[in-house]
Design a protein around this nucleic acid. Sequence first.
DNA 1: ATCATAACGCTTTTT
DNA 2: GCGTTATGAT
Length: 824
Amino acid sequence: MDEQQKQRFLSLRRELIRREFAGLNERQQEAVLCTEGPLLLLAGAGSGKTTVLIHRIANLIRFGRASDCTEVPTGYGFAELAALEAAAAAEGPMDTQTAALCTVEPVEPWRIIAITFTNKAANQLKDRLADMLGPEAQEIWAMTFHAACCRILRREIDRLGYDLQFTIYDTADSERVMKEVLRSLNYDEKALPPRLVLRLISQAKDAMQFPEAFADAAGRGGDQRLADTAKCYAAYQTRLREANALDFDDIILLTVKLLQDYEEVRVRWQQRFRYVLIDEYQDTNHLQYLLSALLAGGRENICVVGDDDQSIYKFRGATIENILSFEERFPGARLIRMEQNYRSTQAILKAANAVISHNRGRKGKTLWTENASGVPITVKESFDENEEANYVAGRIFAQTPPARFRDFAILYRTNAQSNALERSFKFNAIPYRIIGGTRFFDRAEVKDMLAYLCLINNRADDLRLSRIVNNPPRGIGLKTLETLRRLAESRGLPLYLVLADAGQYPALERSAKKLLDFSALIEECAGLLDSLPLPEFYDAVVEKTGYARMLEEQDDVESRTRLENVRELRSSLVNYLETHPDDPSLHGFLEEIALYTDIEQYDAEADAVVMMTIHTAKGLEFPHVFLVGAEDGLFPSLRSMDDGAELEEERRLCYVAITRAKQSLTVTHARQRMLYGRTTANPLSRFIGDIPRELLSPSSKPRTPKPQSPGSREGRMFYDDLPFAERGGWDQPPQRRADVGIGPYGSRSSGAGSSPLRPGAAAQHKAPVVDYRPGDTVQHSSFGRGMILRVTKMGNDAMLEIAFDDKGTKRLLANTASAHMKKL
DNA sequence: ATCATAACGCTTTTT
DNA sequence: GCGTTATGAT
């Protein structure tokens, strides 16, 4: 082929590949076809970033680097060119021969690593890849930073003197270790709070500063607190190493260290991965940047996707610098902006753009959409958080039907705000789910059972041993434990070895029997591990340890829930076995748990309103969004208001909140609210003041713009402070139902106090839990006979939808209703 | 060893 | 205002 033919061949090839991605817009296609070298993808909210990631991987696997290379394979001539010309002229999907001509070095799936931040994102990626590519997708390393590093460490960490079967400590574990360290070094926990020390250590690790270097630096600085921290850092690392444990930071840090210091390791992994993709790049910290760069080293086929405007995790070490300086760190990097939004209405996007435009230090990006302009944004003032919650409940009722409950999301700045909402929703029998808060694996009883399993798995795990050695009570108290610690430390042995050999130590004479009983228990359980399948083994542990008996004996609602949770842990075991037939080991399960701390949303399909913090909502979208608590002092939080950088982070958080909404956005704020036990009054959030007033619904128009207060920006708005009822109530009045009150406190106009409007609602916690299923027939004292249509789980309670023979269909809460109702 | 009461302290969150 | 933890009394 001559030069002209070559060029023709190349452009035809690229065009044909491009056609395979015809469903994407031009920018998205560009990102998909751009396979070689560093690529920075600035993907605005709702711009189809995951879609692009998936298609980009598909392109790599199907066509290799053909779409982004300027070579024509040797031996190609006129025949091949003619074949492409013919294919280009034809319609329809590409045939196999054409595909072969359009392929250069197709990538094996296992040579691609796509890193995300959360398991949720990783799973989403895996699922969508499997949909598109079939079983091949399994081979792609689509996982979190920590999961990827763990897989590497399981092969390599012995070089650093750790056992390949290391344990992972979560944040709570780390905190306990640090408390012990502080105690053993005789530091006062108030003068040197464990959390602070851990934060400093985390920062040191992010900077790859090991204890020695940290001590050197602290010594030079002459800061006593830093010098103390250095001692704690060293002691903390020693303890972790002796327990053969890694904290979350270590997982990344040690992987980076291995890749940096051991050429063999570096070469192995660099050769393995031909393409590196990083999602949510704006959330990476320095260590994660190093890791990404190391993995991509040599080829530098690194594609990072992110949105500087959605960086909301600076408080835990993420540095937006990684995005802002990507092009300097990777010379020759290409930059593609994806600014077309497919999610939201114009009104919502304009509001989001207006809010975020006040930030400096942005890459600069303006979202646009071809979607309709949509309904205006509503800003609603309420008297307090209860009225606010009732307003939201009323609005949701007013729109149901046609909207489903699951089309609504309520977003707030702090988890504590869910309380008022929860009360109101329970009262009004609106099904809801609260995401976040205390997680399943953070519950004490679950951690206790896991501690037993960890100890069985690794007898050197002093931390887990001390958690459960006297739980349930076995007469092994603090003093005995202290003696154990002393002995273990002086001999350089794990606690368990001293305990299991208690007869040898005169100091333990009195408690020797109890200690030996405990070690016999652990050994007995461990013995069952080989003979029983994991779930049955777990049952045995629950029984033999006496944990179940302890909970059964207490026999109150609280311990019944705890027992349920202990049993629920068994289902995660079963679930693990189903998903990992290749590794049905206890060890494999514990590792999965350590990194995958959020239980699968078991009822994700349920038709329920969802409530969560704005942080948790990142990456999600909902037809209707309520942003509640939009007040200065809460959002932005008080602590961020006097710091420019922190205020910018809060503003990005606001941007994230607004851009979650597809069709409608309602912002609420309260004139007064209970905050940390004090009633506080705060003005409307300054962020909401940045939204141009023409985007707002008439009912949210300001009365009179007041004079500027010092320091406030122009365009700031103030809203009238007429009582709620005199302003026309709800924008759309809720359909009041005979059996449904409007809130636990009533509306203010009714003057009701805390007495509920619905009979039985107050006795909720005393009501027995009855198991209801769809299809059950029930007899209700007021509503008569009915059949259960639907059961929606809501925490410990459940929402029942019951078709009564005479009174129509009603929604009732199971715990409340069971007092007035029996199964037939 | 275990239970009771006082004191603290507190965004956001993933791994 | 609430939940967790530290300390003292039984």
